[in-house]
Write a protein that binds this DNA or RNA. Structure first.
Lengths: 183, 183
DNA sequence: GTTCGCATGTAAAGAGTTACATGATTGT
DNA sequence: ACAATCATGTAACTCTTTACATGCGAAC
């Protein structure tokens, strides 16, 4: 089976929800996958175009009263098969996550102690803000369940991914505290 | 002051250690920064070339008995100033770290429970291996201190970055365990 | 002589961001 | 008129990986 990139699989997966247009997909990623995935319109539209060319999805033009026309995409059987196949594939090697803070800290000898402390405090603050973002997304998902806006069995998995973000961010914040004390 | 990319700053920083050649820089990154930074020869050599063109470093050809010739790079005052300036700059926004596991888990509804469990167990195993890699790097740094192979005050910061990797990986492993139980 | 580690490099392809361009509809 | 939101798209640029090409010196 032909290989696609993860961005393609992400969009393929989102098309199993009620998201249908490029605009909506981008919104969805910004609101619900933002803790571990992001995407720009510069990727969304070309990828959708490719999806149709490869017959993984079909397009339907939709005029909805009160809003501009849009293109709605629907997975084909082939599209569903490609998604299913990807889900079954073993994980690739864990990617190295580049971290600007650690890179600067690594060269901490060339900074003053104040600068290093400031770096860590700034990082900690950003992490705390991130944590709050996660809580916000979590609430959004829970509201979505309550108002039946999205599939209940999807929500379960969505909450798992959020928990990951929270746990890992907590650990990073704790490391900041410990390192600030040790410097 | 002109801006460069983080890869350039990483190399600039490494040139403050005893690493002098492109080959050595690549080795160093693979051995000591591998938990939060990586680089390919396709970046190393062109970046070094640019460093010289921009007068951030000078080249010296070096013949060492028993080994092929190589080019040794030395930071200029301008190079040191650029590095220092970057260290002082405030952090950019935290990047979104794409995570293939979370992406697959997000679409867990389209998998069997067995598949999801397998995904998480595979991830956990990879994280444990990663943790061991960190311990290996840590030992390497400690040996480097003992044998005076590298600057003592560098080592302090290097160990901080490793601790980060360990703490965050631990949290991820704990999340795997908790999620496996909950599924 | 051939394999391994040391050493330097480039070209092409792929991935992703940014900035731009366009236009509909609704509310103020 | 105008701003805001919804909506689609492209071109240029940057960054990175991969694959290839080359060659020295040592050890077996």
């Amino acid at each position: 089976m032909q290989k696609y990139n993860d961005t393609t699989y992400a969009i393929l997966g989102i098309l199993t929800t009620e998201c249908r247009s490029g605009y909506e997909i981008k919104q969805f990623i910004d609101n619900s996958l933002n803790h571990f995935w992001k995407i720009s319109y510069g990727q969304v539209y070309p990828t959708l175009k490719k999806l149709e060319q490869e017959e993984l999805a079909t397009i339907q033009a939709a005029s909805r009263e009160g809003k501009p026309d849009r293109k709605e995409y629907f997975l084909t059987e082939k599209g569903k098969a490609v998604l299913k196949d990807w889900l079954e594939q073993p994980l690739k090697q864990l990617p190295v996550e580049r971290n600007e803070v650690l890179l600067k800290l690594f060269f901490g000898r060339h900074q003053t102690t104040e600068q290093t402390l400031h770096l860590l405090e700034d990082y900690k603050q950003k992490l705390e803000k991130l944590y709050q973002t996660y809580e916000g997304i979590e609430e959004g998902i829970e509201e979505g369940i309550a108002s039946h806006n999205h599939n209940q069995s999807d929500a379960k998995y969505w909450l798992f991914t959020l928990d990951y973000g929270k746990k890992v961010t907590e650990a990073a914040i704790a490391w900041c505290d410990a390192t600030i004390k040790e410097i």
